[in-house]
Design a protein around this nucleic acid. Structure first.
Length: 440
RNA sequence: CGGGGCGUGGCGCAGUCCGGUAGCGCACCUGCUUUGGGAGCAGGGGGGCGCUGGUUCGAAUCCAGCCGCCCCGACCA
């Protein structure tokens, strides 16, 4: 992509409304614009990030045996009356009437919708278990939306739902998601710690929040320092095998959010305790027959018994993750995107657009990178070098490649890694090779 | 919803107390000079001050109502 033709409205100054760093940087780097309180438009750069996050999630969900579907944003109120939640949900639910004056709602979540689908088309024990998910916009009319997309009213969520014959099966589905979630966040360059959460009316301990560490996070957390040394990708986990030991390893170590932490009863000595801040980016829980029962979601067992299904649901805040990743990865100059979710792999800066040597060298690199399947943003604008560098640092692409008049004639370029900032003057082909090696 | 604050070109702000017909920086356009970390000079374009109604010879400035937005609290991916 050539920046001269790309819609990337960066801001030199910070809009007054933005208080936290992710919100400021998302506005300044031209990722989002506010449409109204808690509702945002995603501009090309931001939309790319959203899609990258979705891709990671899709890959990990597929690997975990879940299947992607897409359910509607608008749902019939009658469906929610079946589960009883239409009256329980309160003003956070956006209620709408269509032209026939039929009560509808903009879905804040989809348990009812997915349960209806499974109820209508899954009838035999042979068809279980199933794990279906979608990535769809949700609306919750929050009392106080804030911090940009961190707590928006409209937000993109991955919500998945498992259906099993019994508790044992549901527990297994839960464990698979538990592990898949750890892997998903790790791939995005995030350290996510699972923490025991309120499990609601069903009871038991099958509910965990996933908290990503960020200095600017909303909640304080207290956790065993050993949790931070664990790498979910290092296990080489077999998702088909028994995951109970893996889940146990994570859940047996102390981790609590501020409201559940009491220094007086904390089992860990201060030296083993990490006090940090975090952002909730996921929540999983087992809810048994809470929806299957009232909605009549059941299958026939081998002996003819009608068995009500056990469900679980698994959420990831996709749009919130875009902000959370920035909170966890930025510096004074701007965003520092982890490779997996960066909107482009490489920012190629032509330091002197219009100079024949520079143009030729930049175009050559641009073509070669694209030919190798690397996503490149070429800054070919008629701007001064300083402006281009500042914008590149702001939008935070993992690699920067600068082509200037001196280098263009000598056949060299400057390669900079955004994270860390190391710069190397290299032959163009060597720089190209280094990017290909590292991004492979 | 309770408490606090703010709405003036795309962004950041001044002007409002003490009414006289809108200003600064950045951005944008043109020209010249400049050119490896947010250039300099010169010349331009763009807003009638959130909306509605009132007071007044005259309202961004005063009054009333409404709308929108931000911050603190309870809730949430």
């Amino acid at each position: 992509m050539r920046l001269s033709r790309y819609f990337l409205p960066t801001l030199r100054e910070t809009p007054a409304e933005a208080r936290i760093v992710s919100h400021r940087l998302m506005l300044r780097s031209g990722m989002i614009r506010r449409a109204s309180a808690g509702i945002y438009s995603w501009l090309p750069l931001g939309f790319r990030v959203l899609k990258k996050i979705e891709t990671v999630i899709h890959e990990e969900m597929t690997a975990a045996g879940a299947q992607a579907v897409l359910m509607p944003t608008l749902q019939l109120a009658d469906l929610w009356r079946e589960s009883g939640r239409y009256d329980v949900y309160g003003p956070e639910m956006l209620r709408i009437a269509d032209r026939h004056d039929r009560d509808m709602l903009y879905g804040p979540t989809n348990e009812e919708q997915i349960t209806q689908i499974v109820r209508d088309d899954i009838r035999s024990f042979r068809d279980l278990p199933r794990n279906l998910y979608h990535i769809q916009w949700k609306f919750r009319d929050e009392i106080r939306p804030r911090f940009g997309v961190m707590r928006g009213r409209e937000f993109l969520m991955k919500d998945g739902y498992s259906f099993d014959l019994d508790f044992e099966g549901a527990k297994r589905s839960y464990n698979i998601m538990f592990v898949a979630y750890l892997r998903t966040y790790a791939r995005m360059g995030l350290k996510a710690i699972p923490m025991r959460a309120e499990s609601g009316p069903i009871g038991g301990d099958l509910s965990h929040e996933f908290i990503v560490l960020a200095d600017t996070g909303e909640s304080a957390i207290h956790a065993d320092k050993r949790l931070f040394a664990m790498d979910p990708r290092a296990d080489g986990v077999d998702l088909e095998g028994d995951l109970e030991p893996v889940v146990k390893r994570w859940t047996s170590l102390y981790a609590a959010t501020d409201d559940k932490h009491d220094p007086a009863t904390c089992p860990l000595p201060a030296g083993d305790l990490v006090e940090a801040r975090g952002i909730e980016v996921g929540h999983i829980f087992y809810f048994g027959t809470k929806y299957s029962e009232p909605l009549g979601c059941a299958v026939t067992m081998p002996d003819g018994e009608r068995r009500v299904l056990h469900g679980g649901s698994y959420g990831i805040g996709v749009s919130r993750l875009a902000a959370a990743i920035i909170e966890a990865s930025h510096d004074d100059a701007g965003v520092v995107w982890p490779d997996a979710v960066a909107p482009f792999d490489v920012g190629l800066v032509n330091l002197k657009s219009g100079d024949a040597d520079c143009d030729a060298a930049a175009d050559d690199l641009y073509g070669k990178l694209r030919g190798a399947g690397v996503e490149v943003l070429l800054d070919d604008r008629e701007e001064r070098a300083g402006v281009k560098f500042a914008d590149m640092d702001l939008i935070g692409l993992p690699w920067q490649l600068a082509v200037g008049p001196r280098g263009a004639r000598a056949g060299t370029v400057e390669l900079k890694r955004r994270a860390g900032g190391e710069k190397h003057e290299l032959a163009a082909d060597a720089a190209l090779q280094r990017i290909l090696d590292k991004s492979a």
